[in-house]
């Protein structure tokens, strides 16, 4: 019985392309709410995008507050949602260090040091990420839980509200998967 070599090769190629982790792609869960961790996630994301990778960031739980726009608000919130709104940082520039915050002195010192050493801050990194096509997904359930609304989130070119299945669909085919 003759084997159709070309057909076999095409079938193998299709299988290889579909196998988990085959794509030049990075999927990261951004869970934490602190400045240092957000800096790390953004540095990795922009670096990966610069390396030609497709990048997907999934913001969930404490991570989502970093995506709030301090100039925007949302109407129609109940008491608990309002309380969350007050308790959680109002955007990326209100984040504090996970370590050595020291009532604000440590965070302020770190920000000053970064400026002095010309290290990109979150504003610059988010701008670069947007230009490089980094996708930001926000966890629908986290937003719901903390009473955040899409209209109070930052203007960002690739921003979407999704569920966990959408993230997993990307993570499955990504060659790099991270949690921060």
């Amino acid at each position: 019985m003759a084997i159709d070599v070309e057909k076999e090769i095409a079938a193998i190629k299709a299988q290889l392309g579909d196998r988990p982790g085959a794509k030049n792609k990075l999927s990261m869960i951004v869970f934490s709410g602190e400045l240092d961790k957000h800096l790390a996630s953004m540095i990795i994301a922009t670096g990966a995008a610069a390396m030609g990778m497709e990048v997907v960031l999934f913001y969930t739980f404490w991570g989502t507050a970093a995506l709030r726009d301090p100039k925007k608000g949302a109407k129609g919130k109940n008491l608990i949602s309002k309380m969350f709104g007050i308790m959680l940082p109002r955007g990326r520039n209100k984040l504090i260090l996970s370590n050595m915050h020291m009532l604000g002195a440590g965070t302020a010192m770190m920000k000053g040091l970064m400026k002095k050493k010309n290290i990109a801050g979150l504003d610059q990194l988010f701008e670069a990420a947007g230009m490089l096509g980094v996708k930001i997904y926000i966890c629908q359930m986290s937003m719901d839980l903390m009473g955040m609304k899409m209209e109070e989130m930052i203007d960002y070119p690739n921003l979407e509200v999704v569920g966990v299945a959408t993230f997993l669909d990307h993570a499955k085919e990504s060659s790099v998967q991270l949690f921060l």
Binding site: G47, A50, A120
Partner: peptide, 8 residues
């Protein structure tokens, strides 16, 4: 410029 900006 510091990491990651040169590569970006």
């Amino acid at each position: 410029l510091a990491c990651p900006m040169p590569v970006v």
